[in-house]
Nucleic acid binder design. Structure first.
Length: 426
DNA sequence: TCTGGGGTCCTAGGACCC
DNA sequence: TCTGGGGTCCTAGGACCC
């Protein structure tokens, strides 16, 4: 029987956050745009025009203010409600073009493109690309190959080299070899800053140099992950499509503050809010946690502040996703590590030892009324979904994280009526 | 003055058990 | 008066991703 070769497509939205802003404001087309992180601190997205001006990814905005002023760069605070909604629309369109989809991040997805061949594969991808643009106004690039790592490489080339019309298919040894020569080692999926520095010291400048290194050397210097990356570059699939979203093993909610917090009361407000959001995320994936961990830290960039960082955790006798329980225990952990006399810049709550709700064994020493808290939480989620994320909350929650974060250049949420920026009383 | 947030996986080393 | 060796679990640290 003829076995068709597995092919993966990687679809990546071009300059996603910048493209979202542009989709609702056509006057921005052709202009340099940047989108900032929380607190308007760092650049987290740039349009091509901004990249060309030399504005770096992750660069603090104050470092590039000269460029911004000189070239009239349009600056936006990040609007995650808008981007999340646009992402849904893109993914919905993509899922019509293949049987299996793995939503890899807010702006990327892998599709199973097996069953097409050669030019029909390319046509299918081009058709898909046009559909996404027509439906959402977001331009995307597509890379297609026999492994996910090669599909990533194809995608990068589709984005950089205009002659491919936004779709690069790597299905011949010649096309693969050429693309490996054209890919700097640091641009390979799975090879980050540390490894690429070390590899470059060894004369490995490109993906092509990398695949020439012996397996045992790669394994020794870069663990099994590095070896998998090498094999994937050689066309041997080691990373499967994960079309079923696995439940998260840890969940973290944290923020930096625009201005530091010195009193424990202020930190308690934030920690309570974060614990409540972790509880909600747990309920959404139908799980509970047994460990609640809280961390605090001062501003590591400050040359004058005394530095302090610490974390503590509480173990629950029975796993829970109950807001009251998590808020209470998170505050207990905070009390353990809080030290007066510091200017705290960031705090967060991490929940771990996550188990599916059906697997919870109740502790011998405690008989919580599970059904009661369950229906209370269900009612709470329903109310918050209807009236805004923090409409109903525990007494100590701050209600809106925005109070202590900072967004000056926010555009409207064009696509959603209720969002987390709204404060509504219930 | 101003520096994001949320995840995963692998390995080494120590504790502990038989 | 000799001081093994293998397995498992946990944790911290380091690497990576977007």
């Amino acid at each position: 029987m003829h076995q068709k070769k597995t092919m993966y497509a990687l679809i990546d939205c071009n300059n996603f956050y910048a493209s979202c802003e542009r989709a609702f404001n056509p006057s921005l087309i052709g202009k340099p745009i940047v989108v900032l992180s929380n607190n308007d601190g760092c650049v987290v997205a740039r349009s091509n025009e901004s990249k060309a001006l030399g504005i770096g990814m992750g660069q603090p905005i104050f470092q590039v203010m000269d460029i911004v002023k000189q070239h009239d760069v349009k600056v936006f605070s990040s609007n995650y409600v808008l981007y999340g909604d646009m992402s849904h629309r893109v993914m919905r369109t993509l899922s019509r073009f293949a049987p299996d989809i793995e939503i890899y991040s807010i702006d990327e997805a892998f599709l199973n493109f097996s069953g097409f061949q050669g030019s029909s594969l390319e046509l299918h991808a081009k058709h898909m690309r046009q559909s996404v643009f027509r439906n959402t106004g977001i331009p995307v690039s597509v890379g297609i190959a026999a492994t996910k790592t090669l599909a990533k490489i194809g995608n990068r080339i589709a984005k950089k080299q205009n002659q491919w019309g936004g779709v690069r298919l790597l299905d011949t040894p010649e096309a693969i070899a050429l693309s490996l020569e054209q890919t700097p080692i640091g641009d390979v999926w799975g090879i980050g800053r540390k490894y690429s520095y070390r590899l470059e010291q060894q004369g490995v400048k490109t993906a092509a140099d990398f695949v020439r290194k012996p397996d045992d050397w790669v394994h020794k210097t870069m663990t099994i992950n590095g070896l998998r990356t090498k094999w994937e570059l050689q066309g041997r699939p080691c990373i499967a499509l994960e079309d079923v979203l696995p439940a998260k093993k840890t969940i973290c909610t944290s923020r930096s503050f625009h201005s530091p917090i010195e009193q424990i009361e202020g930190l308690k407000e934030m920690v309570s809010e974060f614990a409540a959001r972790c509880a909600l995320k747990l309920r959404q994936q139908k799980t509970s946690c047994a460990i609640i961990s809280v961390f605090v830290r001062t501003n590591p960039f400050s040359k004058t502040d005394k530095q302090y960082r610490n974390s503590a955790y509480v173990t629950l006798p029975t796993p829970s996703n109950d807001t009251m329980t998590l808020v209470k225990q998170a505050n207990r952990a905070l009390e353990h590590i809080f030290q007066p006399g510091f200017r705290y810049k960031k705090t967060g709550v991490i929940v771990g030892s996550i188990v599916p709700n059906d697997f919870i064994q109740t502790s011998l020493f405690e008989t919580p009324d599970l059904s009661k808290t369950k229906s209370l939480m269900a009612a709470l989620d329903k109310c918050n979904a209807k009236y805004g994320r923090s409409a109903v909350r525990t007494a100590v929650q701050s209600g809106t994280i925005r109070k202590l974060t900072h967004k000056k250049k926010l555009t409207p949420c064009y696509t959603t009526r209720w969002d987390d920026l709204m404060e509504v009383r219930c």
